[in-house]
Structures are given as structure tokens and as C-alpha cells.
Design a binder for these strands. Structure first.
Length: 508
DNA sequence: AGCGACTGTCATGCC
DNA sequence: TGGGCATGACAGTCG
């Protein structure tokens, strides 16, 4: 009998389904027709792409493995034969490498390639092995031959997301670099990061460059910049031109024709007294909170973060009497003057805030952004505003909503990346498991072939023709019937023996 | 100075 | 048709 060491994996398994042209050793590109493969590839093939290709190759490997390991059951006289110990190709670890040239090997007891077709599974049953630990790990159901690799249900390489998460467990999803990103307070933990209390970054003059609401903020001199404290240090009531309306202490709306501001007609310095200003504050307004929007309800309060020492707070904290709550001076809740919500952190005014201040928008920016469209329109209808004010309000609303949308979009993107990375890890683990399982099956198949070859040799050694001469296994092959009988079938073109010289006998 | 992360904004497409 | 949303791209800021 042969030993496993003498037998090499058969060529049958290596050449038919695995040796595809164009494959490189150890790296299996995805078939171009494979769904999910990227036809239009960027010049830089990223590692993610390669990984995806590998994953796609697993599908192909599985299909091919199924094809190869399936034993056709086409009847007792099916013509498929199993050459034993034929030249076999050396496999790489995954069995997907290009097979080497055929090499004649001697093994399996030195028996010439006797062939025995038919009851193959009986021999293979000895090679079946208990489910590996990896199966338990992935909850795989031990499939029955000939579909060992394919448990019932969805395709193992196309698990649904919930299944994947089930497979992943909590720990699996929590690994990977993106988990850190997701776990960071900046990335997650706040449904609306834009509303978070993070310190406002210092605004520069470039903030005021342009506005699609028609404000030529770009024309503002450097004085308009909060960062430019030198030029503005001498004027607590700095007159900053904002598109002709400007951060002046004058009322631009009055200059425009005296639009009714519903009680917001008072000069800005009445709401934001300049005598409370820091000497270096170029703006005649108190320091705004770091975030303009109040924290969302239901969220745990986030402790305020101290301003970076590198960027000292330019604006002093506003006095409490400036944090007006409820209706404005007019008593109309929809026409309260522009003020910031109480309880938000301090920080420089944002661009829109400065614009709103410049145009004396009598609404909270929070309301402008967050009100439903009906309420927003009602709010606008109740307060007659100039075209510039309306345009600015709508721009503020659009930008505010888009800002939130961008934050949500980025959050979703990070979540999707984390999810895909977790899925990638699971698929890689599954690929390794399938590769190990494939190696086990190939080893069992090799043993079975060796035993089959030995059995054939034993049968041929006991067969004699009418002249008492043994049959040559080179000229005849054995085929088995369903009832255990054997037939001697002459090989095609064997020594010109034309007549069907079939001999039936019962197996012992 | 360069770089990466973060953020706001704009443009665009879709609903 | 206007508004909102989603998203890629770009630029600015900051560590």
C-alpha cells in the first residue's frame, strides 16, 4: 500500500479548474465578468482592490472546488475513470497557483495506473473528517458530500449583512483602525457634530470673501477679520464694510429704506454694547459662544473644551443679559432680534453670524436652519425684510442644512468603511478556512486514489484471460456496476484490439 | 514646511 | 419648481 508521503496531489484537481491563464502565483485576479469587479480601474490598484479581487477569487475557487470534488453519479457504467497517482501538480497554499509541468511520479505501491470507476464515495468515506474548529467558529453546517464545501443556505461568500454581523460578533466589528475613528468623540457619539461644543476656529478674513446671497464680503478690508486685531484694536466700533452694508454702527437697513425689523430696528450696539468689548476685539459685538447651535436634546452634555492656548480667545464672554431668551423686544417670538442661544460655548463669530449681524437678521440662526419649511416661511412672512436679508437668511438656512448633511454624510462614510473593513476581515478568515479545508480534502482524495490504485492492482493480479495470461492494466480498465460487479473494458486504441472484450465477474 | 485630519462650503444630481 | 438631501470636490484651519 502507499503512504501519503509518496503521493502527490493529483493533477486532476490542479489543472482543470485552478490553472487559469493569466493567473499569477498566489494572487488570483477577479474574473472580469465577475460581478462586483471593477472594470474601470484606477491606475493605482489599491490594497483594498486587491483584497476585493482575492475575495472574488474565493467564489471562483469555491465553484471550481465544488466542480472538482463532486463525484458524478451517472450510472453503474459511467465512463469516468480515476487515474491513480498520475502526475500531479504541486499546489501552493491555496491551490490556486499555476500548476507546474507534469511530472511522472512513482508511488502508491508502484502500481501502474489502474483505473476503477464507480463507487468512489465509499472509498472517500474513509477520508471524511470531523468538522474542523473553524467550522464551529463560523457556525458552518457540516455539509454532506458531494457538497462538503457548501453548506445549505446562502452562498457562504455572500452573507447578508446581519449574518455577517452575527459571524463577526462584537469583537470583530470593534477591531481595526476605523474603530478608533468611530469611537472618537469627534467622529461619533453626537448625532450632529456640527452642533457640538467644539471651539470655533479663529475666523480669518477669507471667511468673508464671497457670498452667494449677493454680499460682496470679499471687499471687506482686513479689518473685517477677527484675526486682524492690530488694525481693529483701536476701534471698538469698527466700521467694516460688508457689501455696502457693513459692520458699521449705523443701521444699514434704515439706509435701505427703513425696512421693518419687527423690533430689531434698534442699533446693534444696543444689543451688543461695545463698552463690554475686549480692547482687541475688532467687532462691536460680544464674544459669541463657540458653537452657534445649542446642544441637541437627549444628548449627554459634553464638557466645554478650553480654547487652545495658541489661539487666545479674542472675544470675551458675552454678558448674560445678552443671552436673551424668549421673544425679543418686540414681543413677537418670530421677530426676536438676532441673538445666540444661551448655554453654548464661546467662540468667534462664524461667517454667517457676522453676516447676520451685519444685516441685522432678527432671527436666531438656529431657527433659520432648523425650522421646518412651513414655519420658516411663516417666520419670513411675519417679518418684512429686505431682499438682501431674505437672501442671506435663505443662504444661512441652506448652508446650515448642508453643513449638517455633510456631517452626517461623513459619519455614514466612516461607518460604512468600518463595516466593510469588518466584513473584509470576516471574508479573509473564511478564505483561510476554506483553503485549509480544501487542503484537507485534497489530502483525503490523494489517500483515496492511492487506495484505489492498490485495489485495482490487486484485482488485475487475480484476473486471467482465456489463455491464463493476466490482463494488462495498460490495456484494460475496470468499471464497477451498481451491484458490485466489475467489468473489464479495453482502453481505446489499446493494441488495435477492436472487439469489446468485456469480462464480468463478481468482486470478492 | 509638509502632512493628515477635520470642517465648512459649493456644485451637482436626485427625489 | 423649490426645497431638502446626499455626496464629491475644494479650500481653510489646526495639531
Amino acid at each position: 500500500m502507499c503512504s501519503a508521503a509518496e503521493c502527490v496531489l493529483p493533477q486532476l484537481l490542479s489543472c482543470e479548474g485552478l490553472a487559469s491563464p493569466g493567473r499569477t502565483h498566489g494572487r488570483v485576479p477577479a474574473p472580469q465578468s465577475a460581478p462586483g469587479s471593477w472594470v474601470h480601474r484606477t491606475p493605482q490598484v489599491t490594497d483594498m482592490e486587491l483584497t476585493w479581487q482575492e475575495l472574488m477569487a474565493i467564489t471562483e475557487l469555491q465553484v471550481r472546488s465544488q466542480r472538482e470534488l463532486e463525484v458524478p453519479n451517472e450510472g453503474p457504467l459511467e465512463s469516468t475513470t480515476y487515474p491513480a497517482c498520475e502526475p500531479m501538480a504541486a499546489f501552493d497554499s491555496f491551490g490556486v497557483g499555476q500548476p507546474p509541468p507534469h511530472t511522472l511520479l512513482h508511488g502508491c505501491g508502484g502500481n501502474p495506473a489502474g483505473e476503477l470507476a464507480g463507487q468512489y464515495s465509499e472509498v472517500m468515506s474513509a477520508c471524511q473528517r470531523p468538522a474542523s474548529s473553524a467550522e464551529a467558529q463560523y457556525g458552518m453546517v457540516r455539509p454532506q458530500p458531494p457538497c462538503w464545501l457548501f453548506p445549505p443556505g446562502p452562498h457562504p461568500l455572500q452573507p447578508s449583512l446581519p449574518n455577517l454581523l452575527d459571524h463577526m460578533g462584537v469583537a470583530g466589528a470593534g477591531e481595526g483602525p476605523l474603530t478608533d475613528i468611530l469611537g472618537s468623540p469627534q467622529g461619533h457619539g453626537h448625532p450632529s457634530p456640527g452642533f457640538g461644543p467644539g471651539p470655533y476656529k479663529q475666523q480669518v478674513a477669507s471667511d468673508d470673501l464671497e457670498s452667494d446671497s449677493g454680499l460682496s464680503l470679499g471687499s471687506s478690508p482686513p479689518l473685517a477679520s477677527p484675526g486682524n486685531v492690530v488694525n481693529a484694536s483701536t476701534a471698538s466700533y469698527a466700521c467694516v464694510d460688508v457689501g455696502g452694508l457693513g459692520y458699521s454702527n449705523g443701521n444699514p437697513l434704515e439706509a435701505e429704506g427703513g425696512a421693518n425689523l419687527c423690533g430689531a430696528r434698534a442699533r446693534p450696539d444696543c444689543f451688543y454694547p461695545g463698552d463690554r468689548q475686549h480692547a482687541a476685539n475688532p467687532y462691536p459685538y460680544p464674544a459669541p459662544p463657540s458653537t452657534y447651535f445649542p446642544p441637541e436634546a437627549g444628548l449627554p452634555p459634553i464638557p466645554p473644551q478650553p480654547a487652545p492656548p495658541k489661539h487666545p480667545q479674542v472675544f470675551p464672554p458675552p454678558p448674560h443679559d445678552l443671552h436673551l431668551k424668549g421673544p425679543g423686544p418686540s414681543g413677537n417670538p418670530f421677530c426676536s432680534p438676532y441673538w445666540r442661544s444661551k448655554g453654548v460655548a464661546d467662540g468667534p463669530l462664524s461667517r454667517d453670524e457676522r453676516r447676520a449681524l451685519a444685516l441685522k437678521i432678527p432671527f436666531q440662526l438656529e431657527k433659520i436652519v432648523n425650522l421646518p419649511v412651513d414655519d420658516f416661511n411663516e417666520l419670513l412672512s411675519k417679518c418684512a425684510m429686505s431682499d438682501a436679508q431674505l437672501a442671506l437668511v435663505r443662504d444661512i438656512r441652506r448652508r446650515g442644512k448642508n453643513k449638517v448633511a455633510a456631517q452626517n454624510c461623513r459619519k455614514r462614510k466612516l461607518e460604512n468603511i468600518a463595516l466593510l473593513e469588518a466584513e473584509l476581515g470576516q471574508l479573509r478568515a473564511r478564505r483561510e478556512h476554506l483553503a485549509r479545508q480544501r487542503a484537507e480534502f485534497q489530502h483525503g482524495l490523494t489517500l483515496a486514489r492511492c487506495r484505489l490504485s492498490d485495489l485495482c492492482a490487486e484485482v488485475f493480479s487475480k484476473l486471467r484471460d482465456e489463455r491464463g495470461q493476466p490482463y494488462s492494466p495498460h490495456d484494460y480498465s475496470l468499471q464497477q456496476t451498481g451491484d458490485g460487479g466489475f467489468f473489464l473494458v479495453p482502453r481505446n486504441g489499446s493494441d488495435g484490439e477492436a472487439e469489446l472484450k468485456t469480462q464480468s465477474f463478481l468482486a470478492h
